[in-house]
Design a protein around this nucleic acid. Structure first.
Lengths: 245, 245
DNA sequence: CGTAGACTTGACGGCACTCAAACAAGGTGG
DNA sequence: CCACCTTGTTTGAGTGCCGTCAAGTCTACG
């Protein structure tokens, strides 16, 4: 109930990149913030089939939303960076139809659904902005669908790195052409619908073309424009323009 | 402004399957309804990059949302049946990041964004229900992502037919195990990220196993349970339960 | 120092793609 | 009424992208 304002900084940056947020609205969001919590890498933040009564905002770390098929196949349907709600949709869907896991140590803040629902009564514009956040998630998924459906493996990998680069930039977590992300090739494979082995080959291909430097958690894109060209990356779907919503 | 109530019937059925809609809310929706319009098969209903000032609800026919890559590859990211908004998200995204086309003759009703935005001021619960509709779109896309990413071609085709069957049932357009849909194998291919040739082979495989009868627009699923088993179809993601949202 | 997790490499195989052609059905115009 | 065209479906042959299997390397960590 008295979450430090700086915790929500990445979140406010995400919002402010799309619309103006009034001081009253900021205050309302801060007031609605509930408990802080931490999850270590590999832990589940929300489980599939779970009935949820609060939504979780990532403060630091990276989380993934995923689905499992009965024979072990896994598809990651979203990657979530600081400032992202991992399950804002559960406010209305009530029951999870997929799981959410921490890919790295994750610090989060939760928002009780009661408080959020009350906000939809008192702050119509803020409601629309929260709605917008779920629409951005959907837009990103849409582009992921296009990638997996119609882009080659190499294009998919390139496209994903372009997207992550812009998303990190919005929340002020890009340093020049460098970014810090706790990704593994297994995770990439499950995001992009490929095998680990093939992800490895594509990563090497990008390295060979001097389009990617990736050592541990440090990722550098030396020539974003060429990478974007290769991927047919068009950032319109991120809707990075501030206007009344 | 005086749209016949029956036009919105499939829409109200979709809503009522998830929550109770009060008479006042129904009236508000009817009052917000704008012009009727028709599109013939193949026509664009909304164009990519377009700035939109109203949202379009399908009354009859089937529409698709799609993205094109520069070299002609197409990915359909959603199929829309009667009662679906094809671009409710444009209320907040403002600009289209993909196109919407009519797959068959489509009759639609439009809702001005001004009217919808006003509704978000006056009817918080109705706002949440509309929000929910966009979340259902996202849930369906999520499952599409899992299909394309991790399911085999045969499983994908089976899964899609299972989904369409349930969605048609909700709006009262299923007759026993039979349904009427203006789909072609080219469309299926672009929905499922496959080639037409391979779609054809999978359709024949399903026919051979007596799981699918498909002649023109008439589609019958003689053994839904076996088809669902093959596809690992789990309808939870459609959130077909009526509860307060 | 041993083990676990992540990355890398090679050989092989198969699912799905491309190319190409034929067939069916419905619509159109001469 | 019948050529003719268009759209959709079907089939076959050949290919290739990507998956599977298997092993080996490297680093971090207990």
């Amino acid at each position: 109930m008295d979450v430090s304002s700086t915790l929500l900084d990445p979140f406010f940056r995400r919002l402010s990149a799309r619309d103006e947020i009034s001081p009253e609205e900021r205050a309302a969001l801060l007031a609605a913030a509930g408990r802080e919590a931490s999850f270590s890498a590999g832990q589940d933040i929300v489980r599939d089939r779970q009935r949820v009564h609060q939504s979780t905002l990532v403060v630091s770390g990276v989380a993934s939303r995923y689905e499992l098929l009965s024979d072990g196949r896994r598809q990651i349907v979203a990657l979530h960076l600081p400032g992202d709600f991992v399950d804002l949709h559960s406010l209305l869907l009530k029951t999870m139809d997929h799981g959410v896991g921490a890919l790295s140590e994750c610090h989060v803040v939760t928002f009780d659904h009661d408080a959020l629902r009350e906000m939809t009564r008192l702050f119509p514009h803020l409601t629309r902005v929260l709605w917008l956040m779920t629409l951005l998630d959907a837009a990103i998924m849409r582009e992921g669908l296009v990638s997996i459906g119609r882009r080659s493996a190499l294009e998919r990998v390139a496209h994903l790195f372009c997207e992550l680069s812009l998303r990190l930039e919005v929340i002020g977590m890009k340093r020049g052409s460098r970014m810090d992300l706790p990704l593994t090739q297994v995770v990439l494979a499950d995001v992009l619908g490929l095998s680990t082995v093939h992800i490895n080959r594509m990563v090497q291909e990008l390295r060979g073309r001097n389009l990617l430097i990736w050592e541990g958690t440090s990722i550098t894109l030396p020539d974003f424009d060429r990478l974007a060209g290769l991927a047919q990356f068009d950032p319109r779907y991120l809707h990075l323009n501030r206007e009344p919503r």
